[in-house]
Simulated scan of single mutants.
Amino acid sequence: MPARFFGTYTPKLDDKGRLTLPAKFRDALAGGVMVTKGQDRSLSVYRTEDFQEIAEQTVAASRNDPAARAFMRLLFAGSEDQRPDGQGRITLPAELRTYAELTKDCVVTGAFDHLEIWDAQTWRDYQSEHEEDFSSAGSAALENLL
Rank of each mutant, 00 (worst) to 15 (best):
N64R: 07
E101L: 02
L96I: 00
G138S: 04
A55P: 05
G32V: 06
T20E: 10
Q57M: 10
L146S: 12
F112Y: 06
A120H: 12
L92Y: 03
A137W: 09
S79I: 02
L142R: 15
G7K: 01
T10S: 10
G17E: 05
G88H: 14
T10N: 11
E56P: 09
G78Q: 15
P22W: 03
S139L: 08
S44T: 11
S139K: 05
D15I: 01
I54D: 12
E131Q: 05
F112T: 05
S42W: 02
G88M: 14
W123E: 00
L19C: 03
R26P: 01
R4E: 14
D81G: 02
F76K: 10
D119K: 08
E95P: 07
Y126M: 11
S139P: 05
R4D: 07
L102S: 10
Q82A: 09
S42L: 02
L75Q: 00
E80G: 03
V107F: 00
E80H: 04
R41G: 05
V35P: 00
L29V: 01
R63K: 14
H130N: 15
R83Q: 07
A67E: 12
G7V: 03
I54L: 14
D15S: 04
T122S: 11
V33Q: 02
I90V: 09
D81F: 00
A61G: 12
L115M: 05
E49P: 05
G78Y: 14
K16H: 14
S79T: 05
A55H: 10
T58S: 11
